[in-house]
Design a protein around this nucleic acid. Structure first.
Lengths: 201, 201
DNA sequence: TGTAAATTTGACCATTTGGTTAAATCATAT
DNA sequence: ATATGATTTAACCAAATGGTCAAATTTACA
C-alpha cells in the first residue's frame, strides 16, 4: 500500500471511530463518515468493503485498547491499597480522555452480543490473581474478606457510571458543565476513599 | 375513544416499548413494531403520527417511572442505614424486572440530550434532603462525612452497572447465565455491606 | 336495522441509504 | 516521458424504510 492509501485508510478509521462512537452503528451514516474524513463515500467501500466491516475495524480496535492497561495494573506487584489508588486514578484519566467509549461498548454489546463478544473474550483480565492477593492481605490482617468479582465491579462501576449517565446525573443534581467537570475530578479521591474505608480493617 | 381503539393503542405502546428498549430509536423498525403488536403498520401512524412521536410516548412513560419510587424512599423518615438497605434491595428488584431500561435511557440521553432531557428534569429527586440526613447522623456519631452526590451515585452505579454491562462482565468472569443470575442476587447484600462498611463509624 | 363515524388494511410513494461502477486522476518505475 | 497500476470521484442503482391514502371493515347508536 502506498503512502497516500495508508493515510486515507487512517483518516477513514479516525472519522469512522468518531461517528460510530457518538451515533452507534445504526445511527451512523456512511456519508457522514466520508464527509468527516473529507473524502468520497466510495472510498469507504474501496478500503473497507461494507459498513459492517468498517464498524468491526473500529470496534475491534476500541475493544483491544479496553483492558491491557487494567490487566497490567491488576497484575502489578504492589499492595492492594496502592493498587486500588492507582487503578482509580488511571481509569478516571482514561475516561476523561475518552468519555464516550464505555457507552459505545455497552450499547454495541447489548444490541449484538453474539457478533462482538469475541473481541472481549481475549481481554486476559483474570480475577483469580486479584482474589489471591485479597486472600493474602486478609490473612495478614490488612483488609476484610471480599470477593474479587464484587470489588472489581464496584470500583469500575463507580468510575464509569458518572460518564455514561452524565446527562441524567448532571440534570438531577442541577449542575452546570463546569460544576460537573469538578464533580468528576472530585470522584478520584472520593472513590478511592470510599473503597478503602470499606475494605480496610 | 372506543374500546377497540384504546386497546389497539395500548398494544402498540407495549410492542413499541419492547422493540425500542432492545433496539433503540435508530435500530427499531416501524414494521417490526407493527408485527410485534399484530397489526397493520399504517395503524402506528393512525394512532401516533410518526416514529418520533411514538418513541416520545414510550420514552416519556419510561422516564416517568424512573424516579418516583426512589424519590419516595429517599424522603422516608428512617435511619440512613435502613434507607440504604431498602434502597439497594428495591433498586435491584426493579432492575431484575426491567434489566434493559437503564441502558435504553442512557443510550437515548447520550445520543439526544436536548430533546429528551426534559422528561428527566421533573424527577423531583432532591439530594439536599439526603445531605441533611447525612449531616444529622454525622453529628450523632453514626456515620462519617460524605457528600450526598457521591454516596447516591456510588450506590446507583454499583446497582446498575452489572445490568448494563452484563455481556462484558459475564464474559470477563467466564460465567454461565445461571451463575451470573446468582452473582446478581449476591450483589444485594454485597453492595449494602460494602456501603455500610465504608460510611459507618 | 340502517347509517355515520371510527378503525383497519393493502397498495403505494418518496426519500434515504448502503453499495457499485466506469471513468478520471495520480503516483511510480522503467 | 509514458505506461501501468493504484487511488479517487461523480453518477447511478436497488433495497429498505417511514409515511400516505383510498377502500374495506367494524362499531356505535338513532
Amino acid at each position: 500500500m502506498t503512502l497516500a492509501g495508508e493515510n486515507t485508510e487512517n483518516q477513514i478509521l479516525i472519522a469512522a471511530r468518531d461517528v460510530f462512537i457518538i451515533k452507534g452503528y445504526e445511527g451512523a451514516r456512511m456519508q457522514e463518515i466520508a464527509d468527516q474524513a473529507g473524502i468520497n463515500k466510495a472510498l469507504l467501500h474501496y478500503y473497507f468493503r461494507s459498513k459492517e466491516k468498517l464498524f468491526e475495524a473500529v470496534f475491534s480496535e476500541v475493544a483491544a485498547n479496553l483492558f491491557p492497561a487494567m490487566k497490567h495494573l491488576l497484575e502489578a506487584e504492589i499492595g492492594i491499597k496502592e493498587k486500588i489508588t492507582f487503578f482509580v486514578k488511571m481509569y478516571l484519566k482514561a475516561l476523561h480522555e475518552n468519555p464516550f467509549i464505555p457507552a459505545f461498548v455497552i450499547n454495541t454489546l447489548n444490541s449484538n452480543p453474539e457478533s462482538f463478544l469475541k473481541y472481549i473474550k481475549k481481554s486476559g483480565v483474570n480475577p483469580i490473581l486479584l482474589q489471591t492477593q485479597i486472600e493474602d492481605e486478609v490473612s495478614r490482617g490488612l483488609i476484610r474478606t471480599i470477593k474479587a468479582e464484587h470489588l472489581l465491579v464496584n470500583i469500575i462501576a463507580m468510575c464509569i457510571f458518572p460518564f455514561v449517565a452524565r446527562p441524567i446525573v448532571q440534570t438531577i443534581f442541577n449542575m452546570e458543565h463546569d460544576e460537573y467537570q469538578a464533580y468528576l475530578e472530585d470522584r478520584g479521591n472520593e472513590i478511592t476513599d470510599f473503597v478503602l474505608k470499606s475494605i480496610c480493617i
